[in-house]
């Protein structure tokens, strides 16, 4: 049975003095794949970062609930421990820290259980095979010298290892060629299950050829202005965002729950 994971109500945020999110309503249940589309600067990445708890973004109104608990003031690492994961658009390079060492530390932190070096090695090997990632990446420094595609694959590897309940994928398909998009999308597909949910932020449809979203949301000027299914994504691909204005918000189901 589907379970409510995320409930975002009238969420408003600012970074420094700039208001970005202008009242977001969004509800996500287990087993669902949500897609958020929107023009550049509409607040897609901000939404991802606010959900993850980026300290520079301040929530000015509304609330974020995860599994029924208000997490507005929860620190980033605590959110990760609850099962929220963000695949970064621009993952940071951390020189001197190997992928394996980093992920073992992260897995220990998220699960609260010590990871034996050997058991973890096998787990990592399995996940790397699943995502068709060369084993040598385990010993490389985190994202250091990785190509754009390698960084994105590495984000999905982290997701596979940490097994979050809610994964937010921020532009995971941007900057990837056709083959890389397919590999990454197939990887995501393998990880999607009835027990977790995904929010995929994209402005391409390519990745949607591999994943069947349950909802497609259009985000313009910090608001979700329309919600639909795959047909909406196809329409936007043809027509662009010109027709979508924040003043013409069509009520989305979770707004009623606020």
């Amino acid at each position: 049975m589907n379970k409510k994971l995320l409930n975002v109500c009238n969420l408003k945020s600012k970074v420094e003095a700039e208001k970005i999110l202008q009242g977001i309503n969004l509800e996500v249940e287990t087993g669902e794949i949500h897609v958020i589309m929107g023009p550049n600067g509409s607040g897609k990445s901000t939404l991802a970062n606010v959900l993850m708890g980026h300290p520079e973004h301040e929530i000015t109104d509304g609330k974020v609930e995860f599994e029924g608990e208000n997490i507005n003031d929860l620190a980033v690492d605590k959110r990760a421990k609850k099962g929220i994961f963000l695949s970064f658009q621009y993952p940071q390079e951390i020189p001197g820290v190997t992928v394996e060492n980093f992920l073992r530390t992260a897995k220990t932190a998220v699960t609260g259980e010590n990871q034996s070096i050997f058991d973890f090695k096998f787990l990592l090997e399995d996940k790397m095979k699943l995502l068709d990632i060369d084993q040598s990446y385990a010993d490389r420094y985190l994202n250091k010298g990785f190509s754009g595609g390698e960084k994105k694959k590495n984000e999905i590897l982290q997701m596979a290892v940490l097994e979050p309940k809610l994964a937010i994928l921020d532009e995971t398909d941007s900057g990837l060629d056709v083959d890389a998009t397919r590999t990454v999308a197939e990887g995501i597909k393998k990880l999607a299950s009835d027990d977790n949910a995904m929010i995929i932020i994209t402005h391409h449809n390519q990745i949607l050829d591999y994943l069947q979203p349950d909802y497609v949301h259009v985000l313009v000027d910090g608001k979700i202005v329309k919600t639909g299914d795959m047909d909406l994504a196809r329409e936007i691909e043809k027509e662009g965002y010109a027709a979508y204005k924040p003043e013409k918000v069509e009520d989305y189901k979770s707004a009623k729950n606020c």
């Binding site: 690492d77 959110r79 940071q92 951390i94 980093f102 992260a106 940490l162």
Partner: peptide, 11 residues
Amino acid sequence: SIYYLMSRGID
């Protein structure tokens, strides 16, 4: 970088 590592559960 700190934010990135914290987003993986590391304090």
